[in-house]
C-alpha cells in the first residue's frame, strides 16, 4: 500500500528528530501519528531508554495529526519511563492535538508543557 493510498495521496510519513535540551532527550515529531506510524515512535522512546536516557520529551508541536494510537504510545512511554525512574514530558503548543489531550483528560495524566523544560 505504500505510496498507493486510495485517493492517490502519499502514505503517512512520520519524522522523528532527536536532540538534547538540558537534561531531556527530545523527540520532535513531524507528520502523522496513527496506528501505522505509531510503532516508530514507541521504538524511538524504547531506544532512548535502552541507552539510559530516562528523561524524554516528545514534541508534538510540529505534528500534523495524532490519533488515539499515538496517545496510547504516550501513556505507555510515560509508564515505562516512570517505572525506570525517569520521566516523560509532552510538549504541545499545537491547538488541534492539545484539544485531543484535553478531551481525553490526558492533559492531567501526562506532563504537558508549551516548551521543553530548560529551553
Amino acid at each position: 500500500m505504500r505510496g498507493t493510498s486510495g485517493d492517490g495521496a502519499a502514505e503517512p510519513e512520520l519524522g522523528l528528530g532527536l536532540s538534547t535540551v538540558g537534561d531531556y532527550a527530545v523527540i520532535s515529531v513531524t507528520g502523522e501519528i496513527d496506528m501505522y506510524t505509531a510503532p516508530q515512535l514507541r521504538e524511538a522512546v524504547r531506544q532512548l531508554s535502552s541507552e539510559g536516557r530516562m528523561r524524554v520529551a516528545i514534541d508534538l508541536t510540529p505534528t500534523e495529526f495524532c490519533d488515539s494510537t499515538g496517545l496510547g504510545v504516550l501513556i505507555g512511554a510515560r509508564r515505562r519511563l516512570s517505572d525506570a525512574g525517569g520521566s516523560l514530558v509532552v510538549v504541545c503548543a499545537n491547538p488541534r492535538i492539545r484539544k485531543l489531550l484535553d478531551l481525553t483528560g490526558l492533559d492531567k495524566v501526562l506532563d504537558v508543557r508549551e516548551a521543553v523544560p530548560g529551553e
Binding site: M1, R2, S5, G6, D7, A9, E11, P12, E32, D34, M35, Y36
Partner: peptide, 9 residues
C-alpha cells in the same frame, strides 16, 4: 493499519 489513513482522507 496502512489503510486507515486512506479511509479518513
Amino acid at each position: 493499519a496502512a489503510y486507515v489513513r486512506a479511509a479518513r482522507l
